[in-house]
Design a protein around this nucleic acid. Structure first.
Length: 798
DNA sequence: GTACTAATCCCTT
DNA sequence: AAGGGATTAGTAC
């Protein structure tokens, strides 16, 4: 056919787009838009170009007009002509081509589809072979009554379809990826706008606040403190109070930064011209409001700022602790007699920038360092330290109370590395003559290497002006804490540093030497207590198997008894000092000895002690005997009648004995007065004794026989009611531990002990009852009688 | 409108 | 010339 020939010959022309057809006059519809020969096929085949062209066409662009122009020169072709060109295939569909006539273009369906059977067959072959050769195609075309080229086209199209399907699938996968990335991107961008700490959920601060800024803040805190002190001095000078909160006489618009700079440079210079006629301190009243504005300059997120300051403080404290642990001379000066080393303050000040506020006037410093092997692994110990309750249980004779106020960071990746807690603690030495040390501090934990951890504490007083700021702070802990390193034998080497500033004026003369030597709250006390407690835990674990005790107590009974004894000792410690664990009311009754403190509290709803009015009386005395002699005397059940009224004048008998460590002095025992009478037959005495290089304890409480029976069989000890009494012994004098028996022939005071005697007594079964003077007298007499008896027995009557 | 499919165009091999 | 990618066009939904 001629028209078919036209098509073949016109293969050099190209159809550009189908869209213009619809917009063209009817006569033009059949006309293909022939493109200028200068636009080569290659150009059109370039996907980018062809897309651009099509877009242009759609927009009725130039190409559309070009097409129109070419149309004029092209030959006319009817729609039917095109039908003709493919009549062959149509015939197949129609069943016969007879009904079509060249003269009378048939209305046969130009559109057709292969029959389902044909498609089925084609598909089947396609699955086996998407690329059939000519022979296969020919065979198939025969079988399906299709033209060979139809089969060819079908396979071609099928392959293309397959390709587009795969493409589409890949596309959707890519789109998913893209969406995911976009979402991630948005999240990250959002996170960058408003950073959140992944550990604590609070606003992130790490790295956000420059080190410079941190230092400026610390400097500001220091200056503020300085200002306070200068104000106080100025007040004295002027005879009227000069507070740092006087009304501003400097315009508020004055740029804060310049003021800061002025203050930062020399403290006075920036404003000295204003104040030349005034005493030096006077202008500070004017200056101060700007100072108080400094924290307010960023009112947006106080806690956020606090956090960053806490973090900076913690890092500085950690740095200081590690250096304090690792450095020897000249920072620490070894003592000549082999005793504890002392801190070289000049070197200390040189080495470390002060990270908390300056030492208040009247405060003194104590610093100590000690180390020892402890039967615990570093990880377990760190866990104990980071848990306020377990920490307090581990050190009952030092910690009266502990709590975690805020977890600023819980640590990284599920470990305690990087954990930062805000804690509150009340520390005591067991004497009513030494006030409880209340400290608010940060505890920061860091893993320095595999099996090497460091935990540092540092007071935050001065950073956080909390609600208790009005209450007097009597102690601040400078960076203190420990580095613990695993040893291959299951032990850890613990090195402890304690560094504090405290108000010595509140401490009784008797105890000042103890505290300043670091023996009261110092490193040695922490380390020795830790060693003792861990040993007890280790024994407790192993005794479950060995059970070499001569008393027939089951392992569970042993555990129950130890638990009860632990509670007893904790209660004893809480009764000696006015810790806030119990709401003690201090008594100031007429004829109470000046150095005996008497307190009362109501006991209600505590199954662990009898209900009613509990009276606690405690005093501390110095005795010219070594701590070990005093300890051995007090814990000896056969000598008990010399001081204990419960013994009924005769020796006591040890009914049960549970060792808590290799030292005989660390044990829990059950005592019975051998001189029994009817009234006391049902009473036993539970006693716990502890001793280490830093001190010793003898704590006891009368207990019910049936109740103890339950406990010794492994029963719950929580319901055994007891009120503990006992003694706390600390060495007093240089180089004088409990086992240092060398009697100094010279000054007796050198080798003595400080003994605290404390009783907790139920004075009335009714919690509502009023305390009578008589009961106070009675307990006062009891305590002084006991002290006298002890003094007499040890021949140290003065 | 889009999706599907038979067919076409035209380049590459 | 065969094969195949790009494209067209008819139709169904």
């Amino acid at each position: 056919m001629s028209f078919g020939g036209f098509l073949d010959n016109g293969s050099s022309a190209r159809v550009v787009a189908d869209r213009p057809y619809s917009s063209m006059p009817a006569g033009a519809i059949s006309q293909r838009h022939l493109v200028s020969p200068t636009l080569t096929n290659t150009m059109f085949n370039s996907p980018g170009l062809s897309l651009a062209l099509q877009t242009n066409m759609e927009g009725r662009g130039e190409m559309g007009r070009i097409g129109g122009e070419f149309e004029a020169s092209g030959s006319g072709r009817s729609k039917d002509d095109e039908y003709e060109s493919r009549s062959g295939s149509d015939n197949m569909e129609g069943g016969s081509g007879d009904d079509q006539d060249a003269d009378n273009p048939p209305r046969k369906k130009r559109y057709h589809r292969h029959t389902p059977q044909q498609i089925q067959e084609l598909e089947t072959l396609f699955k086996e072979c998407p690329h059939p050769d000519e022979k296969q195609r020919l065979e198939l075309s025969r079988r399906l009554s299709l033209e060979s080229r139809q089969v060819k086209f079908w396979f071609q199209n099928r392959r293309t379809q397959m390709k587009t399907q795969i493409e589409r699938h890949e596309n959707s996968l890519l789109r998913q990826d893209n969406d995911k990335l976009r979402a991630e991107n948005l999240t990250i961008r959002d996170a960058m706008r408003n950073p959140i700490c992944s550990n604590c959920g609070g606003p992130a601060m790490l790295g956000e606040v420059s080190l410079e800024e941190q230092h400026l803040r610390i400097e500001n805190a220091r200056l503020k403190d300085e200002l306070d002190r200068v104000c106080a001095l100025a007040g004295k000078f002027l005879g009227r109070p000069v507070t740092s909160m006087t009304t501003a006489s400097i315009p508020a618009q004055m740029p804060i930064s310049s003021l800061e700079l002025a203050v930062g440079s020399n403290g006075f210079g920036g404003l000295s011209s204003v104040a030349t006629t005034l005493p030096p301190g006077a202008d500070f009243g004017a200056l101060s409001p700007t100072m108080s504005m400094v924290p307010g300059a960023r009112p947006a997120n106080v806690t956020g700022m606090e956090r960053s300051m806490f973090l900076e403080l913690a890092l500085a404290a950690m740095d200081e602790l590690v250096k304090m642990v690792q450095t020897d001379e000249p920072l620490w000066i070894p003592s000549l007699d082999g005793g504890k080393e002392t801190l070289n303050y000049e070197e200390y000040v040189r080495s470390f920038p002060r990270c908390i506020r300056p030492k208040p006037v009247g405060f003194v410093t104590e610093a100590s360092r000690d180390n020892g092997m402890v039967i615990i692994n570093s990880m377990a110990f760190v866990e104990t330290l980071m848990d306020a309750n377990r920490w307090a249980q581990m050190f009952p004779c030092i910690i009266a109370r502990a709590s975690t106020a805020d977890v600023i960071s819980s640590g990284m990746c599920g470990t305690r590395n990087g954990a930062l807690h805000l804690m509150h603690a009340e520390l005591h030495v067991l004497s009513p003559l030494v006030p409880i040390r209340e400290v608010n501090f940060l505890r920061f934990c860091k893993q320095h290497a595999d099996g090497v951890w460091a935990v540092v504490d540092v007071s935050i007083d001065g950073i956080r002006e909390n609600s208790t700021a009005s209450t007097y702070i009597n102690c601040r802990r400078l960076p203190s804490g420990c580095v613990v390193q695993d040893m291959p034998n299951g032990y850890s080497k613990v090195t402890w540093v304690e560094h504090a500033e405290y108000d010595e004026s509140a401490v009784h003369q008797l105890y000042r030497r103890l505290l300043s030597s670091g023996m009261g709250f110092g490193a040695q006390r922490w380390v020795t207590t830790l060693q003792r407690e861990c040993q007890c835990l280790a024994i407790l674990m192993s005794s479950a198997i060995s059970g070499r005790d001569h008393t027939a107590i089951t392992p569970s009974g042993r555990r129950s008894m130890l638990k009860l004894a632990q509670r007893m000792t904790n209660n004893f410690c809480a009764g000696v000092c006015a810790s806030t664990v119990h709401k003690w009311n201090k008594l100031c009754v007429g004829n109470v000895d000046e150095d005996v403190r008497v307190m009362t509290r109501k006991s209600v709803d505590d199954p662990g002690e009898p209900p009613g009015i509990v009276l606690s009386a405690a005093t501390s005395v110095w005795l010219p005997v070594s701590p070990s002699r005093l300890f051995d005397f007090l814990r000896n059940e056969r000598l008990r009648s010399e001081w204990d009224i419960l013994s009924n004048g005769g020796p006591m008998q040890e009914m049960a004995h549970i060792a808590k460590g290799p030292d005989q002095g660390n044990c829990v025992s059950l005592l019975r007065a051998s001189a029994m009478n009817a009234s006391q037959s049902s009473m036993l005495i539970l006693q716990e004794t502890c001793v280490d290089a830093a001190g010793a304890l003898v704590v006891y409480a009368p207990v019910d026989i049936p109740a103890m029976h339950v406990v010794m069989n492994g029963g719950d000890s929580a319901y055994v009611a007891l009120l503990p009494s006992g003694f706390a012994i600390v060495p007093d004098g240089p180089g004088c531990g409990p086992y240092n028996n060398s009697t100094n022939s010279g000054n007796q005071k050198v080798g003595g002990s400080l003994l605290t005697v404390a009783f907790q007594i139920l004075v009335n079964h009714l919690p509502t009852a009023k305390l009578t003077d008589e009961s106070v007298d009675t307990v006062n007499n009891l305590i002084s009688c006991t002290v006298q008896k002890i003094k007499g027995a040890l021949h140290c009557e003065s």
